[in-house]
Computed example of a mutant assay.
Amino acid sequence: MTTMTVRDYLDLASAAHAAQGGLSGQRGVMATTTAKRIRDRMVEDLKKGATLPPVVIGAVLAPDDFSALRPLSSGASLDFLPEDRSNLSIIDGMQRTAALQEAYADQPKIGESKVRVEFWLTDNVRAMIYRMLILNTGQVPWTISRQLSVVYAPLLAEIVERVPDIDKVSTPDQPGRRVGPAQYSSDALVELYIAFSLRKTGVDTKEALSDEFSRLDFVDNLANEGFQEQFYGVLSMLSQLDKAFSRYDGEDGFPGGRFIFDRQPARIGFIVALGIAILGRPGADRSQAERTARIQQLEQSAHDLIYRLANLDASHLRDFLKTDVLEELLDKRVGQVGRYERGVFADAFKVLIEENFAVKNLEQCWRAG
């Protein structure tokens, strides 16, 4: 924890704001009448010299930089922070930052006032998520998705670094649509992260974090040092299969192989099926040794299937994928399409896993439900 001038703090925070748009998933500046009146009062108090509670800034550092950290004294250099200040997150203090910006714009001399800043530093994304889920849970109405979005940039950066099989990640700041395999949106990846941990296809990322069992499952997984690696391993399997399936372009009314993982329900179903196979069912979690052995076995089985598909010509790949059967199943008129599709794919990939990826073709998977 240290102190700095309001001007220096706003320079620090504005870099993150400009790059991440709304401070990467933080609660926006509240617009209700009551909130505006409270903020106006805060601005007036700041002009009179009021001191605010500390603002909390989060940063994920490189392991070498983290191990070289020294105690920080008041007014010390901020050289320990990443050069790209856009990767910082305002964990606590969005409303105070907005009030400081407004007061400074109206009365520039406030820039010389002091503000206390707490830096929460870590060398891995897991610890930052812990900071949000465990230490901020009293801040209602946070949702799982919103709390995770606070570490959006570091989590996505780590995914890009640790899962080279993913070719492209689109974000709100760098939008783009999926035009090839292994291309996913940042929102989709965050949802996959939640689904893998909770092992549920029906996770609603918009619901408040009120389910105590979901919270406990998430906390237990965060405490497991192998959890992140296992998630990245599953993402890698997803991306590799996405590319292998996409070798078939489609013909004569048969959808192409990319059709399978073009849909988020298919990715969710795959991730959840593997999550259960590796981590165990919620409430019956496997030990770390069992998880490691299970994912190694599944990675080998998936690799064997991918190698087998690489040696198939277009017609044989079409016969294996059976995308016509899948399309017919998905064309059913049902009330809740998203839930229905997630169920189809979860059942399908459960069969694929039970058969150790050694299926004759995917029809038995598509018809499993």
Rank of each mutant, 00 (worst) to 15 (best):
T3S: 13
M4F: 09
M4P: 00
T5F: 11
Y9A: 03
L10C: 02
A15M: 00
A19Y: 08
S24I: 04
Q26G: 07
M30R: 14
T32H: 06
T32S: 15
K36N: 01
K36R: 14
G49M: 10
L52H: 04
D65W: 09
L72P: 01
S73L: 14
S77A: 15
D79V: 12
L81V: 02
L81Y: 06
P82S: 03
E83D: 10
S89R: 08
I91F: 07
I91G: 05
R96A: 10
T97S: 12
T97Q: 07
A98M: 04
A99R: 01
Q101K: 05
I110F: 02
G111M: 02
R116W: 02
L121I: 06
D123F: 09
Y130A: 02
R131N: 08
L135E: 13
L135D: 14
N136I: 06
G138V: 05
V140P: 03
Q147C: 04
Y152N: 12
A157Q: 13
D165S: 15
D165W: 04
T171C: 04
P172W: 09
P175R: 15
G176R: 09
R177F: 15
V179L: 15
S185I: 00
S186W: 08
L189Y: 07
E191K: 14
I194V: 13
S197G: 14
T201K: 06
D204N: 15
L209G: 06
S210G: 13
L216E: 14
G226S: 05
F227E: 06
E229A: 11
F231Q: 01
V234H: 04
S236H: 05
Q240P: 03
Q240C: 09
D242T: 09
K243A: 10
F245P: 00
S246R: 05
Y248N: 00
G253N: 07
F254L: 00
I260Y: 14
D262H: 13
A277I: 01
I278S: 00
G283K: 05
S287R: 04
T292C: 02
Q296W: 07
E299M: 12
Q300G: 08
S301L: 04
H303G: 12
R308D: 10
S315C: 00
D319W: 01
K322H: 11
T323F: 06
E327W: 04
L329H: 13
Y340T: 01
R342S: 07
V344D: 03
A346L: 15
V351G: 01
V351N: 03
E354T: 08
N356G: 07
C365Q: 05
